[in-house]
C-alpha cells in the first residue's frame, strides 16, 4: 500500500481534478486519470516530501467553515477601510506570534489561511524559535490578534495535523 500509493489523498485529488477537467466518469477517463495521477505522485517522490498525517475530517470541515466565515467578514472590513475617507490615520504593523504547531502541513495550512484572509498576511516563519511574523492592516491590539489566531485556527490545526 505505502509502496504503491505513497500519498493516497494526493492521488485521489489528482484523479478528481482529471475527471472534472474531462467532465466524464467513463471507465476510460477513470483508468487514464488513475494511471496519470499514480505516475505523477511517484514522480514527486524524488523530491522527498515530508511525511504528514491527517486526522479528524470533521474538525477539518469545521475549520473550513470558520475560515470561510472569516474571509467574508474581513472582506467587508477591508472594503470599508479602503472606501473610508481618512485612510492614513489607521495603524498597521507587524506582529510576531509564538506558535505551538510544528507539523509542516499544518504550518502550510495556517499560512494559507492567514494570507487568504484579507487584512492579515504571513510574512516570515522562524523555525528555530517557532514564531511567525505577520503584517496586519488594522492593528488595534496585538494581544487580540495573537489570541484570535491561536484560538480560532491553531488549536483546530493541531487537532487535524498532529
Amino acid at each position: 500500500m505505502t509502496r504503491w500509493l505513497p500519498f493516497p489523498l494526493l492521488t485521489a485529488t489528482l484523479l478528481a481534478v482529471w475527471l472534472i477537467l474531462n467532465e466524464s466518469v467513463s471507465p476510460g477517463a477513470v483508468i487514464l486519470g488513475g494511471v496519470l495521477s499514480i505516475a505523477a505522485v511517484r514522480m514527486l517522490m524524488p523530491l522527498e516530501p515530508p511525511e504528514g498525517r491527517f486526522r479528524r475530517p470533521l474538525a477539518a470541515l469545521t475549520l473550513t467553515l470558520v475560515v470561510l466565515g472569516d474571509i467574508v467578514r474581513s472582506n467587508n472590513a477591508v472594503a470599508r477601510i479602503i472606501l473610508r475617507p481618512g485612510i492614513r490615520n489607521r495603524t498597521s504593523g507587524f506582529v510576531r506570534i509564538p506558535l505551538d504547531l510544528r507539523a509542516p502541513y499544518g504550518l502550510a495550512a495556517l499560512a494559507c489561511i492567514i494570507t487568504a484572509t484579507p487584512g492579515t498576511i504571513w510574512v516570515e516563519y522562524d523555525s528555530a524559535g517557532n514564531t511567525v511574523l505577520l503584517h496586519i492592516l488594522d492593528l488595534v491590539d496585538e494581544r487580540v490578534w495573537i489570541e484570535t489566531i491561536k484560538e480560532r485556527y491553531e488549536k483546530r490545526l493541531i487537532e487535524v495535523f498532529e
Partner: peptide, 10 residues
C-alpha cells in the same frame, strides 16, 4: 499587499 486579496478571495 492586502488589497488584491479582496478580488482573489471573495
Amino acid at each position: 499587499i492586502h488589497a488584491p486579496t479582496l478580488g482573489s478571495t471573495l
